[in-house]
Design a protein around this nucleic acid. Structure first.
Lengths: 198, 198
DNA sequence: TTTTGTTTTGACAAAAATGTCAAACTAAAA
DNA sequence: TTTTAGTTTGACATTTTTGTCAAAACAAAA
C-alpha cells in the first residue's frame, strides 16, 4: 500500500513505541533492539524506515518539541487575560507531565548534548508578547515589579521543576506516586498565588 | 609509594578529570577513551584503578552527592534563622552552579536510571527540621500558609531550575553567558521576596 | 496464476566501546 | 646493584550495538 506521505503501520508503531520508551519510561539510552522488542518488530525495520538510530531519535524529539511549541503558541496568542493564560498553561503542563513524565528532562539533556533550538525567531516573538503583557500587569499592580524575564523564569521554574525532577523528588522527599499527584494538583493554586499579588 | 587509603596521583587525576568532563562540560556519555585523553593518561589505567567504567561513574557521582549532602546538612542544622539559612543556601547553590553547571541535571538523570538515594533516614530528619522551622515562620506570619512541603518545593524549584536548565534557557530565551550570570545574581533577592512575606 | 513492488527477516559485517593480560618501566628498599 | 612492589603500556579478546544485504514473505494488480 503506502500512500505517499502517510506513515505505514509499522513505521508509526515504531515511532510511537520509541516515544513511549523515552518519554513514558525515561530510558533515554535504550538500544534499537530494546525499542524493537518493545514494539514487537524486527530490529532491522528501524533501519528500513529510519535509516539510523540517530534519525529515529531526532525525529521523535523534534516531533514532540513541535507539538509543545504549537500548544504554547496557541495559548500565548489567544485572547485571554494573562492570569487565565497561565492558569491554562499550568493545567496543560501538569496533564502532559502525567502522560509523559520524562519529556521535559529529555529535552534538556538533548539540548545539553548540542541539539539546538529550531525557530529562534518565533520564540523571540512569543517571549516579547509575554514580556509586554507581564509589564502591563505590573503597571496595574497585579504583579510584583521585576524584570519580566524573571517573572517568566519564576513561572516556568515553579511549574516545570517538580515535574522534571519528579523521580528525584519522590525518592528524596519520600512521596508515593499518589501523594505526589495530589501535591501537583495543589500546586496550581499555590503557583498562581506566588506569581500574582491579589 | 601509595600510603593506604590515600589516592595515588593518577587515581586522583582520573577522578578529577571525570568530574570535570561530566559536571563542567556535561558530556555524560563520555567514553573511557575520552576521559583518559582529557586526563592525558592511558585508557587502561581507568581499569587498573577503578575496575570498570561503571565503577568510576558511580564513585564520582556518590562523591559529589555526599559533598552536597554534607554542605546542606551543616546549613540546616546550624544555628541561624530560617531566612538566613535560605539566603546562604542560595549563595552556595549559585556559586557551585557556576563551577559545575551540569551537576544537578546529572543527578536527576542518574536518579531516573534507577540510582537510588543513599541515606533516606538522614534526609527525612533534615526535611522534618525544615518543615518545623517553616511552620514556625508561618505562625509568625512571615511566610504564606501552605503545606511546608510546598514551600520547600517552591524554594528548590526557583533556585535549581534556572541552574539545571541553563543551556536550554540561554538558548531559548536568547541570553549570553554574561547576561544569564547577571540574571542569576538578581534572582537571590527575588527568590527571597517570593518566599517571605515582609 | 504470474508479476510486481513493498515489507519483513535472518545472517553477516562493521564499528564502537570495554576489559584483560603479560611485559616493560620506575623508583624505593634491601 | 639487585630486588621488589607498584605503575604504566600496547596488543589482544570480548562485548555491545549498529548497519547492510540478499533472500523470503506478502499482498495487490495484471
Amino acid at each position: 500500500m503506502s500512500a505517499k506521505g502517510e506513515d505505514s503501520d509499522t513505521e508509526k508503531l515504531i515511532k510511537d513505541t520509541a516515544k513511549k520508551v523515552f518519554f513514558k519510561e525515561g530510558r533515554f539510552n535504550a538500544t534499537t533492539q530494546e525499542i524493537a522488542d518493545a514494539a514487537g518488530v524486527n530490529r532491522t525495520l528501524i533501519n528500513y524506515y529510519f535509516r539510523s538510530r540517530d534519525n529515529l531519535f531526532n525525529l521523535v524529539f523534534e516531533d514532540a518539541q513541535k507539538k509543545e511549541d504549537e500548544r504554547i503558541h496557541a495559548l500565548v496568542f489567544s485572547d485571554m487575560p494573562l492570569k487565565r493564560k497561565i492558569e491554562m498553561f499550568l493545567d496543560e503542563f501538569f496533564t502532559q507531565a502525567k502522560e509523559y513524565p520524562y519529556l521535559e528532562i529529555y529535552m534538556v539533556t538533548q539540548m545539553n548534548q548540542g541539539s539546538c533550538y529550531e525557530d529562534a525567531e518565533a520564540m523571540s516573538r512569543l517571549l516579547d508578547k509575554m514580556y509586554l503583557e507581564i509589564a502591563i500587569e505590573m503597571d496595574k499592580g497585579n504583579v510584583a515589579r521585576m524584570r519580566p524575564e524573571q517573572f517568566m523564569l519564576n513561572m516556568i521554574s515553579l511549574t516545570s521543576f517538580p515535574v522534571s525532577m519528579r523521580p528525584l523528588l519522590e525518592q528524596s522527599m519520600g512521596f508515593s506516586t499518589e501523594q505526589f499527584d495530589k501535591l501537583l494538583e495543589e500546586r496550581k493554586e499555590i503557583i498562581l498565588n506566588m506569581l500574582f499579588i491579589n
